[in-house]
Amino acid sequence: MGSGYTQLSITERRRIERWRHAKGAVDEMARVLKPCRSTIFREPRRNQFRDESMSKCDGYFGAAAQMMASDRHARQRKLIKYPNLVKRVVERLPNGWTPEQISNRMIHERAVPRVR
């Protein structure tokens, strides 16, 4: 089994950017940065900067990649998107419920949306 997942930091993304511009090997990047090698392959595709009006500026840039990843992460936060969900979770916390218990109870109640 692999180690725990951690997201790439801005520093790591900038290092990937420099290695890509220098045409460095992905295996070498993975060895130095320590993430799974597939992360290094996926990162530039997932966070590639594209702008129709400035096509010569397209490419992978560490700072732009960090902003895209942060935006994507923020959009997926259910407790921010759904105020009623927050209310249901917060009601149960003072009663000593753990996050796992709250989540399982919501599954049992067939609550939509629910935390996972």
Score class of each variant (00 low, 15 high):
D51K: 09
Q76Y: 05
R46A: 13
S3L: 12
I102E: 04
E17P: 05
R116F: 15
L85Q: 10
L79H: 07
L8M: 10
L93P: 02
I16D: 02
K81V: 07
W97G: 00
R72D: 14
L79K: 09
Q101M: 15
I16N: 01
R45N: 13
A64S: 05
R114Q: 10
P99R: 10
V90Q: 14
V86W: 14
D27H: 03
E91C: 02
P83E: 10
Q66T: 12
R75F: 13
T6L: 11
R88H: 11
V89G: 00
R116E: 08
I102D: 02
R72M: 10
S3I: 11
E12P: 02
M68L: 11
H108D: 15
R105N: 13
E17L: 09
R46V: 04
C36R: 09
F41M: 07
G24Q: 08
I107G: 00
E17A: 05
R75H: 13
I16E: 01
G24N: 08
P113E: 07
R92G: 02
R37I: 15
R50L: 12
Y82A: 06
R46K: 12
Y82G: 00
V26G: 01
M106G: 05
R88Y: 11
V86M: 09
R45F: 08
R75K: 15
I40L: 05
S53K: 14
M29G: 00
P113W: 09
V89T: 04
Q7G: 05
V115R: 03
G2R: 07
Q7I: 02
R31Q: 06
N95C: 08
G59Y: 07
E17C: 05
K87Y: 06
H73D: 11
C36P: 00
I10F: 00
R77Q: 15
H21P: 02
V89S: 04
A69R: 01
P35W: 07
P35K: 07
T39V: 04
R105I: 03
R110N: 14
S103W: 12
I107H: 07
H73K: 06
S9P: 09
R14A: 01
T11L: 12
H108Q: 15
W97E: 10
R88Q: 15
V26C: 02
P94M: 11
I16A: 00
K87I: 15
L79G: 00
Q76N: 13
P113Y: 08
A74E: 15
I40P: 02
R46W: 01
N104T: 06
R110W: 03
R116S: 12
F61H: 01
V26Y: 14
A25H: 04
S9C: 09
L8K: 02
N84L: 11
N95M: 13
K56D: 06
L8D: 00
E28Y: 04
G59F: 06
Y60P: 01
R72L: 12
T98Q: 08
A63I: 05
L93R: 13
R14P: 01
V112P: 00
E43V: 04
H73N: 10
V89D: 04
W97C: 03
V32C: 02
I107P: 00
R18C: 02
K87V: 15
A25E: 03
K34L: 03
L85V: 12
A64E: 05
E100D: 14
M29A: 07
I107M: 09
S53V: 07
S70N: 12
M106P: 08
S9E: 12
S55T: 08
R75D: 14
V90T: 12
R50K: 12
W97P: 01
D27F: 01
G4P: 11
M67C: 02
R114A: 14
A65G: 06
W19P: 03
